[in-house]
Amino acid sequence: MTLSDFVTARAAGGPHVSRAARASRLSGLVMAAGAALLAALPFLVFSTVTDTLVNLFVLVALASMWNLLAGFGGLVSVGQQAYVGIGAYTVIALADLGVQPYLAVPLAALTCAVFAVPTSWLAFRLRGDYFAVGTWVIAEVYRLLVVRVDSLGGGSGKGLTGLSGLDQTLRGALTYWIALALALATIAGCYLLLRGRLGLSLMAVRDEETAAGSAGIDVGRAKRLVYLVSAAGCGAAGGVITVSSLSVNPDAIFSVQWSAYMIFIVVIGGIGFIEGPLIGALVFFTMQQFLADYGSWYLVVLGAVGIAVALWLPGGLWGLVRSRTGLSLFPVGYHVRRPDVRE
């Protein structure tokens, strides 16, 4: 394309079309301020608060990744714990080899993306319910393989080396920051991914898969890409869990409970919206804090809330907000501005 072509193209499309945005500039400022405040928290509050918030950030990251997978790729997986586990064990193994554990977290994401390629060949042969069950089985297979490796601690798990030299306060703050960075990176990643041409394709696939194929979208490729991104994000989350807990247990890290959390958060927050996992994680985290003392009643209440939202609020909490106010914190759409176009 020559420069003049480019200018004409801009002139033809540019002035009429803007990226859909209502109050997005203001919300962008508010979010940036919020992120800055969160980043400053280790200087402002006791470490018990920041230690708890690490869990919230991990939940935000995991839920965002599941939302990308199921809400945009239509891939309902109950096996993302496979990547939580592989990510966690990658950090353990790399730390044993002398890699600084915090630096091992992004490498854990990379490792999971690599593992996700052959896994997707297998899992993508299955559809719908079979895909869901299949991913769970695959996660179990990964757990069974890991416990056979003695150098990774076998069935009893292993502690993380490489962080013992650090001052406890500094370690707490670093862990907090890396968890915050993970949460922000997953949200920003989802936003940037969905804002591009690929994002529009993914939203079309989400809405109508058959028609998406006829629109010229390579549905299989789009799905495989979100699967890889989601695996990488869950792997980084697994790495953060490890640097936070300083040890790993195979039964806990490969537990299907992670998938249950992700699904619950996304369903109550609003599937198919970037904002959904954020709201859902906040609600879930708050309920966890208040109901933790009530034992099994905690699970009963969680289940009841999940069922109630699924029945009466199919768009989740953010779906409700959006339909009432039209608000969008992360505008990924297009808005045609012309006098003859209805608002």
């Binding site: 801009r10 033809a12 499309g13 540019g14 079309a204 809405d207 109508e208 058959t210 028609a211 629109a215």
Partner: peptide, 30 residues
């Protein structure tokens, strides 16, 4: 009809211009 229900009418056609017609940016929008 199988519309992309959560995309606007413009986006419904834009995604076809991107993926089916192979157009980008302002050209696809136009």
């Amino acid at each position: 009809p199988r519309p992309f229900e959560h995309l606007t009418v413009f986006e419904n056609v834009l995604v076809c211009a991107h993926q089916g017609a192979g157009l980008r940016g302002g050209r696809a929008q136009a």
